[in-house]
């Protein structure tokens, strides 16, 4: 019963804002300034039945996804090395700071000079995601319960078991929240990079064309595509992460010292 009520509440809120959008559209009555929700859906479904649309989506999401996963594994690996040897963290620290503070647009221009537009979004999503994953992984590893690690040391627990039962559950909450924000940021930056670099057959090119031809409905339709696919991508990655999290030492010792 409670679930149904929540569902109704959410649906009502969405419908309310869709109505506001439609009313604004009718009031403004200018398709260049604001496209309505129905028109946006019409354009979206018209696009969605074409092969070119799916090729475009695949082009962008495969590259952004590749950048994300490369950053994910690079972050995990380098953070593990930093956790083991602190000097490596100090060695990497300026690079991480650099990656965090440099504007994405500067990287995009640089990447265009270096690699060209085709694989631009791989590079950009990697650069945006990597520092987030590195910092979160390192925090998670450093927060692993020291008392449990001592226990494992005394009992001579093998390294693979420590990873599986001690580090993995300790890492999970940090990785989960990092992935949640990094997925959105990686995707947005990747698409933004495509809009600047305009690689042929990308979502960014679609958005750029909408700007050139003042096609607001097309712009909204591409935006809707990005939102839908990023939601699916996020849910999928977080689901896999949850399945891999295990049930080991999630909480710390219950008893008092």
């Amino acid at each position: 019963m409670k679930k149904i009520l929540i569902w109704f509440k959410k649906t009502f809120v969405v419908l309310f804002w869709l109505c506001v959008w439609q009313i604004l559209y009718l009031l403004i009555d200018n398709k260049i300034l604001l496209a309505g929700p129905l028109e946006t859906l019409k354009v979206f479904f018209r696009q969605a039945v074409t092969l070119k649309f799916w090729q475009t989506v695949l082009f962008s999401f495969s590259r952004i996804g590749l950048g994300f996963f490369l950053a994910f594994f690079a972050g995990l690996f380098t953070a593990s090395v930093s956790c083991k040897w602190n000097w490596f963290d100090e060695f990497l620290s300026p690079v991480i700071q650099f990656m965090k503070s440099i504007p994405v647009a500067s990287f995009v221009i640089l990447a265009l000079i270096w690699t060209g537009a085709k694989n631009l979004s791989v590079f950009i999503s990697f650069l945006v995601v990597y520092p987030i994953l590195y910092i979160s992984t390192l925090t998670g590893l450093k927060n692993t319960d020291q008392k449990l690690l001592e226990m494992a040391q005394v009992f001579g627990i093998p390294f693979h078991k420590k990873i599986f039962f001690l580090y993995r559950p300790a890492l999970y909450p940090h990785l989960y929240s990092a992935c949640k924000s990094a997925l959105g940021m990686g995707l947005k930056s990747g698409i933004a990079a495509e809009v600047i670099g305009v690689p042929s057959g990308s979502v960014g090119e679609g958005l750029y064309s909408s700007k050139i031809y003042l096609d607001t409905a097309g712009l909204f339709s591409w935006t809707l595509t990005i939102i839908l696919l990023s939601t699916i991508f996020e849910k999928l990655v977080l689901f896999i992460l949850k399945k891999c999290s295990g049930k080991g030492a999630i909480s710390h010792d219950k008893t008092k010292q």
């Binding site: 449990l148 226990m151 009992f155 627990i157 219950k254 008893t255 010292q257």
Partner: peptide, 22 residues
């Protein structure tokens, strides 16, 4: 083999799983 002053058990696991861990 040690019994620590604090329990130092893997909270998400059962008693059997904790024993078999070590």
């Amino acid at each position: 083999s040690v019994v620590f002053q604090e329990d130092r058990l893997l909270e998400g696991l059962s008693a059997i799983e904790n024993i078999r861990f070590s």
